[in-house]
Design a protein around this nucleic acid. Structure first.
Lengths: 142, 142
DNA sequence: ATGATAATGATATCGCTTCTCATATTCATT
DNA sequence: AATGAATATGAGAAGCGATATCATTATCAT
C-alpha cells in the first residue's frame, strides 16, 4: 500500500505526494523533471503547485524513494530507486535514456578514488551519443 | 604568440579575449567559472562585462581552446584544453578537483555504447567524495 | 470531532546564463 | 596613419530552473 511507503519515510500521506509517487510507479517514463510532472498532473486535472513538486521530489530523494540525475541540459530529472546503482546512455538528439550497470567501471572508479585518497560518496557517469533510431533518421535526410 | 592562437580559430585578437586566455594560461586555477574570471579580472583593474565573458567562453570552447565541465553545483567551469580527455574527482566539501585518465573505463564505455548501438559523441564522469585534507579536518572537529 | 503539527500553493526571489542593442574596437585597405 | 566595413563589447533586460516566504489548508493522533 502506497501510504505505508510514505509513512515509513516519515512523510504524511498527502494527495500531492501520492499523485507524484503514482506517476513514477506507473512508469510511462523513467526520467521525469519537476516540470514534466507538473504538466502531466495538470493534464490529469490535478491542481497542485510547482513549489510542492520541487519540495516533494527533494523529500523523496532524501527518503531514497527516487534518485536524482543531471544530464547537462540544465535541469534535474528523477527516477524511481529500483535498487542497484546504474549509469546512463543519453541520446544527444532525441533525449532517449538507456541504463546500464558495469562492474568493471565501478571497480576502476574505486581504484581511482583510492589512489587520490578520496573517500567516495557518489559518482555520475553519462555517455552521450546518437541512438540507433536517430542515426538511421539522419541517413534518410542526406 | 597569443594573437596567433586566436587568429587560427577565426577570432579577432581583442582585449577581453587576450585577458581571458592569459588567465587560463597562467594556470593558478585549472577550473574557472564565468564568475571566477569576472572577479579575477576586476581585481586586476580590467574593465569588462560578464556578458562578454560568457560569449568568449562559448567561442573558446567551440574553438577547442578550452573544455567545459559540469560538477552538479549548477554552474559550468572551464579548463584549458591540454589534449587527451580526462575525468574528474571532486571534493564535496572544499570543491577541490583532481584529474585522472583511466583507459579501462574508457574502453568499457565504448563497449557499453556499442551494446546499445549508440554512436558515442562524448561522456562525462565525475567521482564525488571527501578529499584527504577534509577527511582529517573532520576528524579534528569530533 | 478537535487541535497541534505539518504541508500546500501563489508568488517573490535567487543564481546562472543568454539576449538585445546602441556604442566601440579591430584590421584590411588605402 | 587614416578610413570604413565587419565584428566585438558592455549595460541591462530577460529567461529559466530552482528555492524561499508566508498565509491558508489538510493530515492524523487523540
Amino acid at each position: 500500500m502506497k501510504n505505508d511507503n510514505l509513512k515509513k519515510s516519515g512523510l504524511k500521506a498527502t494527495l500531492p505526494r501520492l499523485k507524484i509517487l503514482e506517476l513514477f510507479e506507473k512508469g510511462e517514463e523513467h526520467h521525469l523533471s519537476a516540470e514534466d510532472i507538473y504538466k502531466k498532473l495538470v493534464l490529469l486535472d490535478e491542481e497542485l503547485g510547482l513549489a510542492t513538486i520541487y519540495r516533494v521530489l527533494t523529500q523523496f530523494e532524501a527518503a531514497n524513494l527516487i534518485v536524482r540525475n543531471h544530464f547537462e541540459d540544465g535541469r534535474f530529472v528523477y527516477e524511481l530507486n529500483k535498487g542497484p546503482h546504474h549509469d546512463h546512455v543519453v541520446c544527444d538528439r532525441c533525449g532517449k535514456v538507456d541504463e546500464f550497470v558495469d562492474e568493471t567501471i565501478e571497480n576502476s572508479q574505486r581504484e581511482v578514488a583510492e589512489k587520490f585518497g578520496f573517500k567516495i560518496t557518489a559518482h555520475s557517469l553519462q555517455i552521450f551519443g546518437i541512438c540507433p533510431k536517430c542515426q538511421s533518421e539522419s541517413l534518410q535526410q542526406s
